[in-house]
Design a protein around this nucleic acid. Structure first.
Lengths: 331, 331
DNA sequence: TGCGTCAGATTTACCGGTAACGTAGCCTGC
DNA sequence: GCAGGCTACGTTACCGGTAAATCTGACGCA
């Protein structure tokens, strides 16, 4: 890790500027010089210093920051994967962080990451602290907000409407004859997007004259256990619900497990609906009624929108991706 | 993003060196100067430039790189979470990448990331390309290998033995009276660690005189579908197996779903065992027989070992974490 | 009075690239 | 025969911090 352009330049009898040009594959040197420089760089085990390059050129480097709500979410794993593949192919490096559904943690993370002068950022959700918005606006940094749709993005956005997901599921369950619906969520107010789905759901029910009967919002992580115990709690208060909409598929599957343990027939005694489209949901124990979100696609689209912007190409600012309600056998 | 130390220095009537010291919380300035500088920095919206700092000081910065096999693995999501929390608390930034179980992709990623002069790296597994080992050794970079135990780490390691996991599960299933075992894996030769578990499993069975009857290795991602269809394939070849050990819990749950669909009683007609300890496995549809891996702990321990090294503290080079076989109701 | 000491601050050099510009030699066309 | 252009380079300045060395004035003290 010690050889630098100067060393290569000395060893090959040219100036370091020529070496720089050769290594970056530019032009302005002979075939012969190219081969010699490349050979010597290889021999010396030259490792470029992007720190110096990004700093010296004082231009956007190849660093992209991405902040997700939780690293342990299966859905975001797929989004990350989509982003990573798209960026990796284009030579960008990904810096990640988690904000735990907190706008303040997000701001703190952005303050850290921005000091590395990233070429752009990918954020989750459209709810940010005022400090964040200030910071980003006057840093003039390309930003893609993903996951939740916003009509007025800071810069660009790729997502869908969580509210509409809730509405759609509400309408679907009504069509299936459900009249006494409950909702089980998690993370309380912290998860703004989950709350949007709930609001959409409630709004569709209310409009049809069959308002939500009861809801249970847990303060745990939205996993299987939360779904299991959430349903237990909710049913102890309202035993006569005929369907429950869950915050996500993990919780719905937990709820399904509880229903089975309790001897309830699904969907006859109780309908169960989730959200997200985790792989397990399409198999076990029966096909879950849920909304499939194109996670990898969102990641890919976000990365591509960002890179297009960085290269000065004109792309669209708002990309709406389609979610898909799959009827399943539990709703 | 325009104010720099010089600007603050001018505005507060001191030199930029003094500003630097104040902002880094050192000493060698008066209380009065400190307050003035801090106030002006705030007013100008100063954002430090870590690129310049890391470059100029030519010392380990606060960047840590981490490479995982797949970003979509639930288990690695938890490892990442453990790493991120531990590092975030200590002011480090995390750069991630996926190697898709390929040593060559890993090397390519390392070549990229190393040019950012990270303070250290966290890699998954102990199998690396020769080029990788060279690169790391002469970069003298702190490296933590996680997930798979190695007795001769490049530098440090945090993990457990996959082989032993397989042995332990083999012995357990034998004790439960299983005699005709099958194995279902995925990713073919690419996943060295999954293969280690299979080898351990086979070795335990063979030693007891009840060797593995058959195995099915899929070339898909190790998910629910692969488990579902893998079991279908395996049973079509060997209908009389009395237990199947799966590559991981996702696949085992897929297998469980197939067994149910097929009308097989689990565990009476067929035992099913997984590996990994995903949350769903402990609930649905019955408690899965599996091995729980302390994912978050591994991430945390890896991050802490790395930081200890960076701070010059003496930590242990090899950290062995305990996995736990949970009997469950399916094996 | 002279001198050491110390807090508080400044000066200088440098990290490793890249952009912008300069230049020598050669070819080409009119 | 020479302006003009092209090729293949070299020179210089600079990015924004940090380490190390240096400076300065006030104070204590023999």
């Amino acid at each position: 890790m010690k050889a630098n352009l100067e060393d290569i330049a000395r060893a090959s009898g040219v100036s370091k500027m020529t070496v720089s040009r050769v290594l970056r594959g530019g032009s302005g040197f002979s075939e012969e010089t190219r081969d010699r420089v490349l050979g010597i760089a290889e021999k010396l085990g030259y490792v470029p210093n992007r720190l110096a390059a990004a700093f010296g050129a004082d231009q956007a480097g190849t660093l992209v920051g991405m902040c997700v709500p939780r690293l342990t979410s299966g859905l975001f794993g797929h989004v990350l994967d989509g982003v990573d593949r798209a960026l990796g192919r284009l030579g960008y490096q990904l810096m990640i962080g988690a904000n735990n559904h907190s706008a303040d943690e997000e701001e703190a993370w952005i303050r850290q990451v921005i000091s590395w002068r990233p070429a752009g950022l990918i954020l989750s959700g459209r709810h940010h602290s005022p400090g964040t918005v200030d910071l980003l606006r006057n840093a003039a940094l390309p930003v893609v907000e993903i996951w939740d749709l916003t009509t007025s993005p800071i810069d660009m956005s790729v997502g869908f409407s969580h509210f509409d997901c809730g509405v759609e599921m509400g309408q679907f369950l009504l069509r299936r004859g459900r009249r006494r619906a409950g909702y089980i969520g998690a993370l309380a107010r912290a998860d703004v997007m989950g709350a949007s789905r709930r609001e959409g759901f409630e709004s569709a029910l209310a409009r049809a004259g069959h308002p939500l009967i009861d809801r249970e919002i847990l303060h745990d992580a939205p996993g299987f256990y939360a779904g299991y115990y959430g349903l237990e709690t909710l049913l102890s208060r309202c035993p006569d619900l005929d369907v429950v909409y869950f915050h996500n598929d993990e919780m719905a599957i937990g709820g399904l497990a509880y229903a089975q343990a309790r001897g309830l027939r699904v969907p006859d005694d109780l309908g169960i609906a989730g959200w997200g489209g985790m792989e397990a949901a399409s198999i076990l124990p029966r096909r879950l009624t849920t909304t499939i979100v194109p996670t990898t696609l969102i990641g890919k689209a976000a990365a591509e929108a960002l890179v297009a912007r960085l290269r000065g190409e004109k792309g669209q600012d708002v990309t709406v991706v389609a979610t898909r309600l799959v009827p399943g056998e539990t709703g």
